[in-house]
Design a protein around this nucleic acid. Sequence first.
RNA 1: GGGGUGGUGGCUCAAUUUGGUUAGAGCACCGGCCUGUCACGCCGGAGGUUGCGAGUUCAAGCCUCGUCCAUCCCGCCA
Length: 594
Amino acid sequence: MKRTHNCGALGLNDIGNTVSLSGWVDRRRDLGGVIFVDLRDKHGKTQVVFNPEHNTKVHQIADQLRNEYVISIKGVVQKRPEGMENPKLKTGMIDVRVDELEILNESENPPLAINDPKELARENDELRLKYRYLDLRRPWIQKNLFLKSRFLKEVHHFFNKNEFEEIETPVLCKSTPEGARDYLVPSRVHPGKFYALPQSPQQYKQLLMIAGVDRYYQIAKCFRDEDLRADRQPEFTQIDVEMSFVDQNAVIELFDSFVTEVIGKVWDFEPPTTIRRMPYTEAMLKYGSDKPDLRFDLEIKDVTELAGHTDFGVFNNVYKSGGKIRGLAAKGCVDFTRKQIDELTEYVGRYGAKGLVWMRVKEGGEVETQVAKFFTLEQLHSFKEALEAEASDMMFFIAGPEKIAATAMGQLRLEIARIKGLLDPKKREFVWITEFPMFEYSESEDRYVSMHHPFTSPMPEHLEAMLNGDLKNCKAEAYDLVLNGVEIGGGSIRIHKPEIQEKVFRLLGLTAEQVQENFGFFVDAFKYGAPPHGGLAFGLDRIIASLEGQESIRDFIAFPKNTSASSPMDHSPSAIDISQLQDLHISINAPSKN
RNA sequence: GGGGUGGUGGCUCAAUUUGGUUAGAGCACCGGCCUGUCACGCCGGAGGUUGCGAGUUCAAGCCUCGUCCAUCCCGCCA
């Protein structure tokens, strides 16, 4: 029985036609006589009808049908009787009176309720991942995967149009010490040696620029062996891009048009033709984050000078030790209960804040706070002015080292927005964050490390200072694209002068020998005429999840791993045969469990 | 590595302030009835080592300790 239509296709125009459909039994409704079956495939559902008066034999076979049986039917499209239409179904004006039925395959009672009528029905993640092939039958999750497919088609179209070449880079690479932990692949041919899976194709794409490719892109799988989150998988996909003879402005402008032409098209909305840009310092000050959510205001203010010169010990101690005091006026939050404030205090504590100072702005404008005795009326009033707080607002303050004061306040800002329902899922606020610090100090390694990566170019105006060893204030020509508080992409202009690259390695504490050993081929390549170049990479899964208003990227990946980087379905990773290990010259020295 | 939450029939959950008969419900499943339903309806049935292991107690799904797993977060993720 060859199918003539899919399960989402039939309508009033097909009435009277003989058709053949194939699909899964979504649900069977047996009324004793007539049996209705909702037949489901990728495209939708169609109701098919088995009437004993019309065809006794077929009706008897239909009696055996159960959820998730795979069947083919042949029958005649008929208009549903008056009042029996189902407006919830695209095909709800018609149904198919079945003349022939073939059961292609039976199904055991499925462990997941694939036909659960609740939108976005989901069991716990472990079960869903174990039976992922069933989970993926659900229309809502198929929608996610097909959306990604459609998006990628537009992505390819965009890069083709703009004269980019799609070039593959190796998955078996050289391990390098900078950055995330590598996934390693042992070499059979070279005992004791390992490949690394790429954290990104960074060095290869730069080498392609040196090779004269001019414009490169790739839908690239990347691997990082770090602890996972809802928005982090051990393997993930980047839209990886690199361009020659460009400056930062050229890259950003091209990807402004990428947002307009590709993202705006697939998601059917009109992004601004020019996406706003915000320096890193401003983002950290006003929003306490390098990926600010700009769907709402709640701007953070610096009150270090004001608060530092009060008699309040918490404030002036922080002030004396060089910390910062940041404040925020939570609009309309004057009625937060003590319990809510305690919860918020605990919440900011996760981000290192030692405490949370609050002040209520009452109806008449007077300020009410538990710590009133430490301040003069004038000081309380000036806090109100500084935060632009009005009656019915709650003022919050966090004091501490700059990074903690900023990020804890940034998180508080987000949490208040969640409580007040300010995170409009329909809004899409893009922003480029620019002028990132070139270096940041790593406590664990007791040295400066690259904030982006070691190939990032300093801003031209900071080059001189950097060469003189001023790492703290050196800014990089790096940029991140942020959407609704999610970093969806990032990149930089790269260093193309070998002597500057050498110097950066040196500033990062790498010796000439270490550079030679780890990056020798890369550094060498720059000696033979490297063009100025730069690029960026988008996190494919994050873009889509974010545009769909989801925080977890798992529902956008066909076969994701769980939080311990394993797959309940195929049980990877798994132990392997001893002979395989012997081939690889590896012996296991694992800590014993249980 | 650390913290929060959770683990009870196939699934989603409940189990009385503070431990007390035979651990319940909905969905799914099986049987019966039902000829226009669409989350069909009605009647009946089966299905449980309450993650695992100790402990406290006359008595533990509930309290304590340990452990495993899941999930969210911090660290980490150039």
